[in-house]
Design a protein around this nucleic acid. Structure first.
Length: 251
DNA sequence: TTAAATTCCTGTAAGC
DNA sequence: TGCTTACAGGAATTTA
């Protein structure tokens, strides 16, 4: 998108954007750069304003080349931005959880970006909440959702229900490395398409076939063969191996 | 201060 | 086969 000018904007789903004059403020602007922190995306415009975006569950920012297929836009397309190359950038979201908004400065969560998380970022002395809940708190670490929380904890050999304050130094070393490795692998594979995810060109991710635990409750552990456990932890469906992942209850 | 529960939304799958 | 119901989840908000 960098260097492309937005020639016209159509806002179809009003609640997907804010403020109300979104279209007027974006039309005529040019994308000058982009940045990202965790799951938040910032598209910097040439007037200094920033188009912020969070795709949440089913959101997609799709680039449609000129004379593309006519399947777009459809009833789940909320914003259409016509570009000076004849293509279009559309914001599409079936479940309407995603958001586009304008900001004067990038509005990123406070947590360290998960891709570069360190052992020091996992110091949670006194915290009794499950380590999985802390991993998904974007104020602590930005970028980990349900899939990568479960996968990281599996690779680190830590039971997701373990209180954050009960992690040992060795746990933190393994967990920090596991998070970085899982995310790096997922990025290399274009992300995880379990159901809805598509990239900016509409392509599915290839990481789903490499998942060890997420979505595999009751199925055999790929390491020890025992049936994987499944329960709600921190309000989220959570899958782990009761044999390969240790539960340290002491705080 | 921290932790847990609730809310939004629609497609999908399970259950009868 | 067709209908109803439960479930999935990121993060803001509310409640405990």
């Amino acid at each position: 998108m960098i260097g492309r000018r937005i020639t016209a904007v159509r806002v179809l789903g009003l609640h997907a954007v804010s403020p109300a004059d979104f279209g007027r403020r974006v039309a005529g602007r040019t994308f000058v750069s982009s940045s990202r922190h965790g799951k938040y995306l910032a598209l910097h415009l040439d007037n200094g304003e920033i188009l912020m975006c969070h795709l949440r569950m089913t959101g997609r920012l799709l680039y449609l080349p000129p004379r593309g297929r006519m399947q777009w836009p459809n009833e789940h397309t909320h914003v259409v931005m016509r570009l000076d190359d004849g293509g279009r950038l559309i914001f599409h979201d079936t479940r309407k959880f995603g958001r586009l908004w304008l900001a004067q400065q990038a509005e990123f969560p406070t947590g360290v970006d998960a891709i570069e998380v360190t052992v020091q970022d996992l110091r949670w002395a006194g915290r009794r909440a499950a380590v999985k809940s802390l991993l998904m708190d974007q104020r602590l670490i930005a970028g980990i959702g349900n899939i990568y929380a479960d996968e990281s904890l599996f690779r680190a050999g830590i039971d997701p229900r373990t209180p954050g304050g009960a992690l040992t130094d060795e746990d933190r070393v393994r967990l920090a490395a596991a998070i970085r490795d899982v995310l790096a692998d997922a990025v290399v594979n274009g992300g995880t398409t379990f159901m809805d995810y598509r990239d900016g060109l509409g392509r599915e991710g290839r990481f789903a076939s490499l998942l060890n635990v997420y979505g595999r409750g009751g199925e055999p552990c790929r390491v020890c063969g025992r049936a994987l456990c499944s329960a709600r932890v921190g309000g989220r469906t959570t899958v782990w191996c009761g044999h390969c992942q240790r539960y340290n209850q002491a705080t």
